[in-house]
Amino acid sequence: MGFTTGFLGGVTLTYSLLYFSLYIHRANRSVQRSLLSQQATLLNSVVEPPPPLPEPPAYEVRRAGLVEALKDRWNSEIERVVRNFEETDWAEKRALLEEQAAIVWGKVKSSESAQNLETKTEELEQKLKDTVTRETERVKDVVSRETEKVKEVVSREAGRAKDAVASGTDKAKATVEDKVQDTFGREPRLLELK
């Protein structure tokens, strides 16, 4: 620890002790002064009565200005709204609104325009069903015609393939028979002898 830090630490400690001791001494003197004052007043009140207390000062009752009245009214309205919001049973409100919506929906559904709308909807539904049935039948007819055409083409091509295979088989038989005849039907040549 250097000279400077030691000196500053010592000054700080001394000043702190002096400050606290003066603070405690001042607080004790203040308590003693109030106790002595109370005792003096008590002793003096035995000999001579205490003087009467002075009249309280007259307070003026002023009406708040317009701005203050508006602020108070605004604050009370906000408090009321917040209190109502916090105290409201929202589940009950939801159930009540659902009931009212069901009643309104029932009235709308039973009204004349709703019945007209319902009949128009049924007519459109029937037209749509008829159109779908008609188009389904048309598609079935087209599919059956195309299936028949495909079957005809397949059978025609199968016949051609059979004819081609039969003619190919006949040619192959003739070629094989010629080869066999050539190989076994003639006399062996000199070079072919073993």
Rank of each mutant, 00 (worst) to 15 (best):
R29V: 00
R29Y: 00
R29W: 01
S30Q: 14
S30I: 02
V31C: 01
R33Q: 11
R33N: 09
R33M: 06
S34T: 06
S34W: 00
L36I: 04
S37H: 00
S37M: 02
Q38P: 00
Q38K: 07
Q38I: 04
Q38G: 05
A40F: 01
A40D: 07
T41A: 14
T41L: 12
N44Q: 14
N44W: 04
S45P: 01
S45N: 06
S45I: 02
V46M: 13
V46R: 14
V47N: 11
V47E: 10
V47W: 06
P50M: 06
P51S: 13
P51N: 08
P51W: 04
L53V: 07
L53A: 12
L53S: 09
P54V: 00
P54Y: 00
P54L: 02
P54R: 03
P56G: 02
P57G: 01
P57I: 00
P57T: 02
A58V: 12
Y59R: 13
Y59F: 12
Y59E: 15
E60R: 09
V61G: 02
R62W: 01
R62M: 02
A64W: 06
A64H: 08
V67Q: 10
V67C: 03
V67A: 13
A69Y: 10
A69I: 15
K71V: 13
K71D: 12
D72I: 11
R73V: 07
R73L: 11
R73G: 04
N75W: 05
S76A: 07
S76F: 02
E77F: 04
E77K: 07
E79P: 01
E79M: 08
R80F: 03
R80E: 09
V81F: 11
V81E: 12
V81N: 09
V82I: 12
R83N: 11
